[in-house]
Amino acid sequence: MGRYLLERAVQACVVLLVVSTLTFLMVSLAPGGPEIMMTMESTPEQREALTRQLGLDQPLVVRYVKWVASALRADFGRSFGDRRKVNEVIRERLPNTLLLGGAALAVSILVGIPAGIISAVRRYSASDHVVTFFSFIGVSIPAFWFAILLILVFTVHFKLLPASGMATPGVPFSLGNRLLHLILPATVLATATLPNLVRFMRSALIEEIGQDYVRTARAKGLPNRLVLSRHAIRNALIPVVTVLGVLIPRLVGGAVITETIFGWPGMGQLAVASTIGRDFPMVMGITVVVAVVVIVSNLLVDLAYGWLDPRITYG
């Protein structure tokens, strides 16, 4: 185990290096630049001054080496936008994203897995069709549309929930207040992630129920529930767990629309703003964070495989 983890750590370093190099290249390839500025009314002199200040007049290789050198000291430099330290901004934003993403993930798991199980066990029943239908609505409904609808119903009409932000401005922090603000964005986000779990749970479990051992166990008179919960579901969880490993990084970097509409100051919003402004250091910082999340969640998935099915080994 220790050796396995060590190997994975070494691999992780390679992945980080590859990702950062590729991203650095792509960022430089992309049209536009931070010196362009989001206004038509800036002069060439201003742009030249900014290019110098931001070090963009240096060759790509020099800039990359400098970046790697400071990144190794966990210093991602300063934003090309408001010039704050990238580390500081990410430290502010990451917990917000983890809270929102975590809530959405919890809802997805708590609702998605049981729904997938029901759908599989009562295959082709009315409840299966209902679950299928709603899960595809979840995939197809545009987040902006669903979010506005929820705000109209729950905020504007029934005045039950706050429409945006993480807390009521000026009110001291309280858990209740934070949770109230969390409900709508977490719902929207979960609606998009949940169908993935439902669909994979359903298909894997159907496959599992069709297996010999389940039939045999049933024939021997083992109660259906027991067969399902002890064996079939556990085996069927392998694709579901894999998908979880894919969803987690997406929640960290990709909850853009939800964060934007609900004014939730998270990483997704930051990622898009820094892409639009070509804020290279911020993009690099966010990419490294997302890469770490990818690596860790896929490692956890691989470890979970061994737990779900002890025969699975690597190598």
Binding site: V27, V246, V283, V294
Partner: peptide, 16 residues
């Protein structure tokens, strides 16, 4: 892993 970590928006802009 590496592909999952790349910022999609920049992949698109670079492809463009």
């Amino acid at each position: 892993d590496a592909m999952m970590a790349l910022p999609t928006l920049f992949v698109i802009l670079a492809a463009l």
